[in-house]
Design a protein around this nucleic acid. Structure first.
Lengths: 272, 272
DNA sequence: CGTGCTTTTGAAAATCATCAAGTATAGTGG
DNA sequence: CCACTATACTTGATGATTTTCAAAAGCACG
């Protein structure tokens, strides 16, 4: 595992009412020691939700402007540095999380270290839906990530007051379920080549500053492997072969061009 | 594929208000031609929900006795003979289903016929949660199965009136999600032996008339294979080896004794 | 310009799939 | 009732995709 230097001292950056010592815990990293950063922090503390990137996505969209302060009162925004685990499988599930920035990987482990990444959470992803009192998976930031944390109990009360939110949560869960079934098909029945093609195409719909046809892979090869049920070596080899076959180009390990979209679609669908 | 004899003539056995020609469509198989059976059918038509096996499980448990007639008015009970497909992936999702008896397999197909079974639906399982307007999977009865069908739109209205139902649906979806993640771990990272052990142990919590330690496998080996992402031959061989290793006994192809529970648990958890 | 990590590439090994055939079981028809 | 057929299940031999083991190449960082 990668050892994080000064970032390890970084605790949680907390805004939101009800968190008394929030101001004491801002990041020690250079990017947060500037006055500007602290001002932003304070600003966001005043109305964390109204200015949130995920305001109109996910479950928060179910709350109207006038009720937003109630949501904000429950929300605790946190900076999670890359590599940091913020949900541990098996721990008591005391919080819900909403990813507002960056990417997190969700995974399950076997005792001997085998890992299955069950999904990547990006802006707007809501985490912690499990009915059980313990988390069913772990979550770790892929890159520097912002998440919004809610007390499970207090959010439960809020949901009781806003049925639209429950509806929204059901929609989210239903969509996740469909995605999970698609992933089961991939893991159980697709070849390595088909899996990688499916993955690349899925990345296309993710927001990124790159030009049309270019996709970004913020996660390491190991993560892709653990997501697709393969090994790093197989991922690497498969990408190399896809390039040799002129289906993709590789600008860098993290930036890939989808060169033959139709062929990739066919591959991903299992038609070749 | 297996060709079903007279069962293929069997249409749907429908009770419930709003289905005019229900009485014409009872089963032609011998088990339903008796007077007693038809009487039961009529009885169930009068109060299909109160006497339903799934009355207190699943989403129906969210409805109180006094409101049960409203639910019953929407419910259409159907007999699905073994082998019959009653949900087809990609079709417009006009109905929800609730399995009240028997077992159904849920699956996705690739164009060349590769199949992934994403789950087995038993008594109380609610199907069709997808937000999309089309079904994300197909469903086929494993053995003779009873399902309860609801119009999507009309059930939506009912849910609006009974928030407890929405809550229940969310619970159901959340639990399915947890199960799906567990299955992804199995498909992506477990060996054939571990997968089969996991499957056998999971079958243990299913209701069955068999004695303690005995489990029933109503589905064919092919189905188990498509559920675990393996082939029939591997399933067969793995079961044979588990028997040779004294972890299980096989009373018949469909009845298995878990002989060394602890060892199976270790296997399933990936600790050996 | 090392150092440590990620990625890529190569060769050998292994698990699981495929192909093929035999056994068992259930329903069918004489 | 018994052969007959179809299907499911099991077992064996072979093969291929993917993993494992090993090492080189590429990159970021101090």
């Amino acid at each position: 595992m990668k050892i994080w230097g000064y970032r390890d001292f970084v605790a949680l950056r907390c805004y939101g009412a009800g968190v008394s010592n929030a101001d004491q815990k801002y990041t020690r990293g250079p990017e947060m020691t500037t006055l500007r950063a602290r001002q932003q922090s304070v600003l966001r503390g005043a109305e964390p939700c109204a200015s949130c990137g995920a305001r109109y996505s996910s479950v928060c969209a179910a709350i109207e402007e006038k009720d937003l302060d109630r949501l904000a009162a429950l929300a605790v925004s946190m900076s999670v540095p890359a590599g940091r685990t913020f949900i541990t499988e098996g721990d008591p599930a005391e919080h819900f999380f909403n990813v507002t920035n960056g990417t997190a990987k969700l995974f399950k482990l076997l005792p001997d270290g085998r890992r299955q990444i069950t999904g990547f959470a990006t802006m707007g992803t809501f985490l912690g839906l499990a009915v059980s009192s313990n988390y069913a998976f772990s979550a770790e930031a892929v890159d520097d990530t912002q998440v919004c944390r809610f007390s499970r109990i207090r959010l439960r009360h809020l949901i009781d007051d806003f049925p639209a939110m429950e509806r929204r949560l059901l929609d989210v869960a239903s969509n996740e379920l469909v995605a999970a079934q698609e992933q089961m098909l991939l893991l159980g029945r697709k070849t390595a080549r088909e899996r990688v093609a499916s993955f690349l195409l899925a990345r296309e719909s993710c927001v990124s500053p790159l030009p049309e046809g270019h996709i970004q892979l913020p996660m390491a090869r190991t993560d892709i492997a653990d997501y697709l049920g393969l090994t790093v070596e197989t991922i690497s080899r498969t990408l190399t072969r896809l390039r040799a076959d002129r289906l993709i180009d590789m600008v860098s390990p993290t930036e890939i061009v989808l060169r033959n979209h139709a062929a990739l679609e066919e591959l991903a669908a299992g038609m070749s």
